[in-house]
Amino acid sequence: MLLSVEDFSVSFRRYAGLLQQRLVPALQGLSFSLDRGEVLALVGASGAGKSLLAHALFDILPPNAVTTGQLVIDGSTLDQSNWPDYRGRRMGLVPQSASHLDPLARCGKQLAWAARRSGSTADPQQALARFGLDATAAKAFPHQLSGGMARRMMLAMATIGKPDLIVADEPTSGLDPDNAAVVLGHLHQLADAQKGVLLITHDLAQALPFATRVAILRDGRLVDIEPASAFTGAGAALKSDYARRLWQSMPQNGFLTHA
């Protein structure tokens, strides 16, 4: 078992008035596990808490977040003392937004930082080429890259150190189908090399050929986990109603007539 999420909840502390605090729940009682060699796709409506889970795994939640439950990686419970040993070294994050890049540093330099942090001796050129980027992209500042190029740059940074666990938050958003297939194919290869991949995505259709299982999140709770193979035809093999509605609302399927 590479990653085990045990009864994990996130809530936000908010002030109601001047002195009163209340907790607004965001993720509630999440439990699931991710094996080596597996791509687990995490799908769900926006606001369901998909990115929160990614941020929680890397301890980069906003300061007013309160968490309960446990995140266990390779048998060790993540806490303040061991996070620095894992984060950016044995686990890599591909963030959802390009705002996670340093706007003042050239991308090549940021890639070199990522390599140094993980003690990687990999050739940065190769890491870029894997995602279809070249030296021009390395010389660019983040704002000079297109949305899709920035995303591929963040993928190169997250994977250059060959981490055991890759958490990719919407890694194909803004990518054309060819580049998206390259990215997902690479994540799948990492799983084949006995890494674990948590693929957070809205794009069920695109993720299915590359995913082992699909976890469905709704309003902060895990609805169910379905094998990727159950998403087929009219969705008769799907256990939950919500999964079936997600499947049927896709442009490839019913689209506007459902939902």
Binding site: E170, H202, P251
Partner: peptide, 18 residues
């Protein structure tokens, strides 16, 4: 509209395009 439903689940995406 630059990739405006690229981060949305299929149900919400259909609602917005409707």
């Amino acid at each position: 509209a630059d990739e405006i439903t690229a981060m949305l689940d299929p149900i919400t995406q259909a609602d917005i395009w409707r």
